[in-house]
Nucleic acid binder design. Structure first.
Length: 110
DNA sequence: ATTCTGACGTGGG
DNA sequence: CCCCACGCCAGAA
């Protein structure tokens, strides 16, 4: 029920569904939106989501669990702080147990 | 209108 | 295993 026609709006709807202490990848969201391959656009959309506090952009990382977007957050490790605050262990900008903490948007379909 | 870049992903060598 | 190149689409110069 994607009421929003905008691509970024859809990204927001998915990102908001990311459970606390869980993370997902840009590609997963892109694939869920049916625009697999355009994972870059997801990141671009999240960039605009900075205005929306409801969108936990810090819970979205790349496919290897690397905080590729931490550089875009305030300070130097705000993204890492937010994640660790949720119990996510991060070493060298990389999420530990990423495969376990990974949340697949498709689970929402179930 | 054209060109480049970008919070990625996949594939080939 | 590591490195390189291409594709995706949207926005800015």
């Amino acid at each position: 029920m994607s009421k929003s026609s905008g691509f970024f709006e859809k990204v927001y709807e998915v990102a908001v569904k990311i459970p606390y202490g869980r993370v997902t990848s840009y590609g997963a969201i892109a694939k869920y939106l049916g625009t697999a391959g355009s994972a870059r656009m997801v990141g671009w959309a999240l960039n605009a989501s900075h205005n929306k506090p409801d969108v936990p952009a810090h819970r979205v990382v790349n496919r290897v669990g690397l905080l590729s977007g931490k550089h875009h957050f305030e300070g130097t490790n705000l993204m890492e702080q937010l994640l660790e605050n949720e119990g996510v262990k991060i070493i060298d900008n990389q999420i530990q147990n990423f495969n376990i903490l990974f949340w697949d948007p498709f689970l929402e379909l179930i």
